[in-house]
């Protein structure tokens, strides 16, 4: 195929995924494919399991059926030991939360350096790199501040910086604008979109917000245990064969 998207590596490839909580199936026989540089909005009602799906993809929770491959790493079903995927998370995934979750006792630049330290940078090399990244995002004026002194929007943008500083292949955002006012939300989303596009990072964005969903390339919806595309009319996505990226 000559589809330019089809040529890009598949960051997330899941087929026949099933996740069960006690005797209730959160989802069954679901497929998901996200390519590098692609942004996907994940919609659905509260409590339906959107955050859970993110956790499945990140390897923080085990899935019960199907196959899943994330950023080239194959995840096994029913794997309760979540530490084995830690390395994957460290190197290849970035997380943004609704509640920001910056470490309060570290400064902004220290917070942003954290992922770099985790992948092996020394502090002498991590901090400048973090600073550079902050600079790139226009946040360098905040670098020595403590998170508690920042506004919500500033905190979230810092969190974003932290999530991308180590150049992950995949960014998982769980209702990132939930705690923000419309302007800050706008800024944060814009920043997210540009950074993701520049770095060719895949993005899965869980959100309620129409606006947030609109910045993404496409939308999928989780409902009744089924993951289906939600394009307001556009034809369903073709099922593509999983390929090793």
């Amino acid at each position: 195929m000559n589809d330019p998207i089809a040529k890009l590596p598949l960051v997330v490839c899941g087929s026949g995924l099933g996740k069960r909580y006690d005797d209730r199936w959160l989802m069954r026989d679901s497929d998901i494919q996200v390519m590098a540089g692609e942004s996907v909005a994940l919609l659905g009602e509260s409590g339906v399991g959107k955050s859970t799906l993110l956790n499945l993809i990140a390897g923080l929770e085990p899935f019960n059926e199907g196959q899943l491959q994330v950023a080239g790493d194959k995840l096994e079903p029913n794997q309760t030991e979540t530490d084995s995927s830690a390395e994957m998370r460290r190197k290849k995934i970035g997380f943004v939360f609704q509640a920001f979750h910056l470490l309060p006792h570290l400064s902004v630049v220290q917070n942003v350096s954290l992922p770099l330290l985790l992948i092996g940078y020394s502090i002498e090399s991590a901090v400048p790199e973090a600073l550079l990244f902050l600079n790139k995002l226009g946040l360098e004026h905040l670098s020595e501040k403590r998170p508690s002194t920042l506004s919500g929007g500033e905190q979230q943008r810092v969190a974003l910086a932290r999530s991308l500083v180590h150049k992950p292949a995949l960014l998982l955002a769980d209702e990132p604008t939930g705690n923000l006012d419309p302007e800050s939300a706008e800024r944060a989303l814009k920043l997210m979109k540009t950074t993701v596009q520049e770095s060719q990072c895949a993005l899965i964005l869980v959100t309620h917000s129409e606006h947030a969903a609109s910045i993404c390339d496409r939308r999928i919806r989780l409902a009744d245990g089924m993951l289906s595309s939600d394009d307001n009319g556009t034809p369903p996505e073709q099922k593509l064969k999983p390929e090793l990226v």
Binding site: A58, L60, T82, D83, A86, E87, M88, R89, R90, K91, I93, F95, F97, A99, H101, L103, L114, P115, L118
Partner: peptide, 14 residues
């Protein structure tokens, strides 16, 4: 919460 977040960042329990 902090620990949870750290695990999201890829730190193991140990």
């Amino acid at each position: 919460r902090e620990f949870g977040m750290l695990r999201h960042l890829g730190i193991t329990r140990r």
